Computed example of a mutant assay.
Amino acid sequence: MSHTAHIPSHRKPRQRASKTALRAGVAGGVLSTIAVAGAAGPAQAEPVTQTIEMPTITAGLSTTVAASAQATQQVALDLETQADEDAAAATAAKTAKKAKAEAVRKAEAKKKAEAAAKAKAEAAERASRTAERTTLSASSGSSSPSYSSNATGSAASVIAFAQSQVGDAYVSGGTGPNSWDCSGLVQAAFRTVGVDLPRVSQSQSTAGTQVSLDNLQPGDILYWGSAGSAYHVGIYVGGGQFVGAQNSSTGVVQKSLDYDPPSGAVRVL
Rank of each mutant, 00 (worst) to 15 (best):
M1E: 09
H3N: 10
P8M: 10
S9L: 05
S9Y: 05
H10R: 14
R11G: 11
R11E: 13
P13V: 07
S18K: 08
K19G: 14
T20F: 04
R23H: 13
R23N: 11
R23P: 11
L31M: 06
L31I: 08
V36A: 14
V36G: 10
A37K: 02
A39G: 15
G41K: 10
P42L: 03
A43L: 14
A45T: 15
A45K: 09
E46W: 03
P47S: 01
Q50I: 10
P55Q: 04
I57Y: 13
T58N: 12
A59T: 15
T72H: 04
Q74E: 11
A76F: 09
L77H: 13
L77Y: 13
A90Y: 13
A90M: 13
A93E: 13
K94N: 15
K100P: 07
R105F: 14
K106A: 15
A107W: 04
K110I: 03
K111D: 08
A113I: 03
A113H: 08
A116T: 00
A117L: 00
E122N: 01
R126V: 00
S128L: 01
T130N: 10
T130P: 04
A131E: 10
E132S: 11
T135P: 05
T135D: 09
L136S: 10
S137H: 12
A138L: 12
S139L: 11
S142F: 09
P145H: 01
T152Q: 14
T152C: 07
I159C: 07
I159E: 09
A160M: 02
A160W: 02
A162F: 02
A162Y: 04
Q163P: 08
S164K: 00
S164R: 00
S164I: 00
Q165V: 07
V166Y: 08
G167H: 11
D168H: 02
A169D: 15
G173C: 06
G176P: 07
P177E: 06
S179D: 06
D181R: 00
L185K: 06
Q187P: 04
R191P: 09
R191E: 13
R191C: 06
V193F: 03
P198D: 05
R199A: 05
R199T: 04
V200F: 04
V200P: 04
S201A: 07
Q202I: 01
A207E: 09
A207I: 10
T209H: 07
S212P: 06
S212F: 04
L213R: 03
L216H: 07
G219V: 00
G219D: 01
L222Q: 05
Y223V: 01
G225N: 00
A227Y: 08
A227K: 07
A230L: 00
Y231Q: 00
Y231S: 01
V233S: 02
V233Q: 05
I235L: 07
V237E: 09
Q241L: 15
F242N: 09
V243T: 11
V243M: 10
G244H: 11
A245V: 02
Q246H: 06
N247T: 11
Q254N: 13
K255Y: 12
S256M: 02
L257M: 12
L257S: 05
D258L: 05
D258A: 12
D260F: 02
D260Q: 08
P261G: 05
P261E: 08
A265K: 07
V268Y: 01
